[in-house]
Amino acid sequence: MLRVAVAGASGYIGGELLRLLHGHPRATVVAATSDRFTGRRVDGPHPNLRGHTDLCFVGHGDLTGLDLDVLFLATPHRETMARMAGFLKLAGTVIDLSGDFRLRDPETYASYYETPHTAPELIPSFTPGLPEWHRAELATADRISVPGCMATAGILAVRPLAEAGLIEGEVRVDARTGSSGSGASSGSAGAHAERSGALRVFAPTRHRHEAEIAQATGRTVRMTATGVEAVRGVQVLCHTTLAAGVSEKDVRSAFRAAYRDEPFVRIVAQRRGLYRLPEPKILSGSNFCDVGFAVSGETGTAVLIGALDNLVKGGAGGAVQCLNARFGWPERTGLEFPGLHPN
């Protein structure tokens, strides 16, 4: 049984990590940290855990000496890189869910996060936490960086065609996300009175996840992000130009070749039905990412679609899937929940 801890466990991602890890048959959560809630029970900010744990939050300094096997980091962007050297001393394997070690180029990081990277020497030591494309590396990785939620959906939707040489030119990503993507401390922007009924374009250009999608696909990416009224869920529509002669059959074949054996990626591209294309509503609570497409033969273009629960496959579930891949366990371990319908 692995001894694991979650740093920054009071937010939404931290809560999802605690929920999933408490149900994991091969992990024991021995600590959860929070500067704000130190000494208080974790089922205060995470009431869904009532009756499942008596754990109380501790300070970050209390992680020393716990003999941890794995440390999950749900700590904020920018703050995490400043503390990473200390975090790496606490456990044999560190799985980071912040944005600080996702981008391989420090200058690109500085451009998108508007601050210099303070630990660039550590960046090459992190393996991208996307098992669908990095499974072999994850099997021996002790430092893992889980991609962002919209980046995960975008990469899984675009990369099969990019790898097969079926698209050309830039990719334009129209992303939509629920309010939980803003975090538990989003302030007035996340208040119900401000959020209800809104379709808020909060990143009309240069959302930081566009850099992650570009890095993973080798394409130039332009991304817009809109907040929608849902609490959970991400959906991305990736507008692409197909290479000459590429048919709808070629597109479907590329997706099948990439994902036929994947436990958490489903191809959803049907001609009829209520859920004929990827829809995040039915993925709530699950670790699935549904991908699909629509091809226009007249214009030689395609819309590639990805949908997931931003807190699970786009965050905590993706991290637990990386844990399973790292230790050679079936990747569905602790992640079997199929989602809800109706929801």
Rank of each mutant, 00 (worst) to 15 (best):
G14D: 03
G51L: 09
I282H: 08
G285L: 06
R326H: 04
R172G: 01
L242M: 06
G154R: 09
C56Y: 10
D100L: 01
A243V: 08
L242W: 04
P338W: 04
G15H: 05
R256P: 09
P45F: 10
S10H: 06
E170C: 11
T240V: 08
P342K: 10
A191I: 03
G273E: 15
G297Q: 15
D62K: 07
T205Y: 12
G318P: 02
Y113R: 03
A257F: 01
M1Y: 10
H24T: 08
T80G: 12
T75C: 02
A254C: 00
G11D: 00
I305P: 10
V291K: 08
G183T: 04
G8H: 12
H22M: 09
G245F: 14
T299G: 09
E212R: 07
V6Y: 05
D105S: 12
R206N: 02
L73H: 01
G165C: 00
H209A: 07
E16Q: 11
Y259C: 08
E298V: 10
G23H: 13
H46L: 06
V146E: 06
A91Y: 07
I167F: 12
V291T: 07
P330D: 07
T80E: 08
A307Y: 01
R206Q: 03
A230D: 15
V312T: 10
L156T: 04
N310K: 06
L73Q: 02
T217V: 04
V303A: 04
G44A: 06
R135T: 05
E137A: 00
R19H: 11
E336H: 03
S286L: 05
A27E: 13
L122S: 05
A258P: 08
G99Y: 11
Q321C: 02
F293N: 12
K249A: 13
P147L: 05
G39I: 14
P120S: 13
E79V: 02
E114T: 13
G14M: 06
K249L: 12
L323D: 01
I213A: 03
I213R: 01
S186G: 01
H209L: 04
G86S: 05
